[in-house]
């Protein structure tokens, strides 16, 4: 039982890291990003390839790949995402879906369709947590993942720049009035989201094989976490990610691994129907429905 909890939490830490980027893009930019998992996929394949071809540790490789991720994030933001800001939902869905196909195909062209596995002595060494034997890679991924999520929360809440960005999310118009440029906030948030997903990919690849199609699942799981935690909520993404990790671990052990996915999507639909604002989101008043505010 304890080992299942530990496995679940360890897996959940990385999921939080992927989802926190998606939730910020959602909450601050109001964009539904269907390509999010592809960034993670690129992080997985990129880290594995760099690590193998340069013969360096994946934990060094992931830093190089993350820097490439910054460039990719900025470019994609200006070329594609910026054009969809404020557009209808379907423009966003299909622009990012097109981007997802594009990134997948490019990855196929570069890396092929076969699975890449990575063998790193540090990553595959075992550590003992409360009597449970786990791969070091999983623990590293968990620790780094949680640290980054907490870091971004700290940055958004405790620094001036972070607070300005949150101001944009609350009221674009008012933010502009007091001299905050939403455009800058958007490029920062999108790039942070991309880089986090890339790093998450780099962190899981030492313990998990990957190919060009590994991203889709993570896109879907991230959506689940985002909805569970509430759109735009960083603590929500953290708790949501850990919960989903636990649910997957328990379903895998007690019901069967083939039902891991199904279980989280059933939870997803239930949360959406019963508490659409998520576990951490605030419910908006009914006056907004009628549009009358005295």
């Amino acid at each position: 039982m304890l080992d299942v909890i530990i496995y679940g939490l360890l897996a959940g830490g990385v999921l939080s890291l992927v989802a926190v980027g998606l939730t910020l893009i959602f909450g601050i930019m109001d964009i539904t990003n269907f390509a999010h998992g592809e960034f993670m996929m690129l992080g997985m394949l990129g880290t594995a390839t760099v690590s193998i071809s340069l013969g360096v540790s994946p934990y060094v490789a992931v830093l190089l790949v993350a820097i490439a991720g910054i460039v990719m994030g900025v470019v994609i933001h200006f070329v594609i995402i910026k054009q969809t800001l404020g557009k209808s939902l379907y423009v966003q869905v299909f622009a990012t879906f097109g981007l997802s196909i594009l990134l997948q195909s490019i990855a196929t062209m570069i890396f092929g369709t076969k699975y890449i596995a990575l063998d790193d002595p540090l990553a595959s060494s075992r550590v003992n947590i409360f009597g449970t034997d786990v791969e070091a890679a999983k623990l590293i991924a968990f620790v780094v993942g949680i640290a980054l999520v907490i870091g971004i929360w700290f940055w958004l809440n405790k620094t001036r720049q972070g607070r300005e960005i949150r101001a944009v999310a609350q009221d674009t118009y008012a933010a502009r009035v007091v001299g905050i440029r939403p455009g800058r906030a958007y490029v920062i948030i999108f790039t942070v989201g991309v880089v986090f997903a890339v790093i998450a990919g780099g962190l899981v690849v030492p313990s998990q094989i990957a190919n060009a199609y590994s991203g889709t699942t993570f896109t879907l799981i991230s959506f689940v976490i985002v909805v569970l935690g509430g759109f735009g909520s960083v603590p929500g993404a953290l708790v949501g990610g850990l919960s989903i990790g636990l649910v997957q671990a328990f379903t895998g052990v007690y019901i069967g691994t083939q039902w891991q996915q199904a279980s989280i999507f059933v939870i997803f639909v239930l949360v959406l129907l019963l508490r659409p604002q998520g576990l951490f989101g605030r419910k908006s008043g009914d006056s907004a429905l009628v549009g009358g505010h005295e």
């Binding site: 009914d286 006056s287 429905l289 009628v290 009358g292 505010h293 005295e294």
Partner: peptide
């Protein structure tokens, strides 16, 4: 004022 309208018209 608007609230009483919302109540009368069934929105609240």
């Amino acid at each position: 004022k608007t609230t009483i309208f919302n109540v009368i018209s069934g929105f609240m």
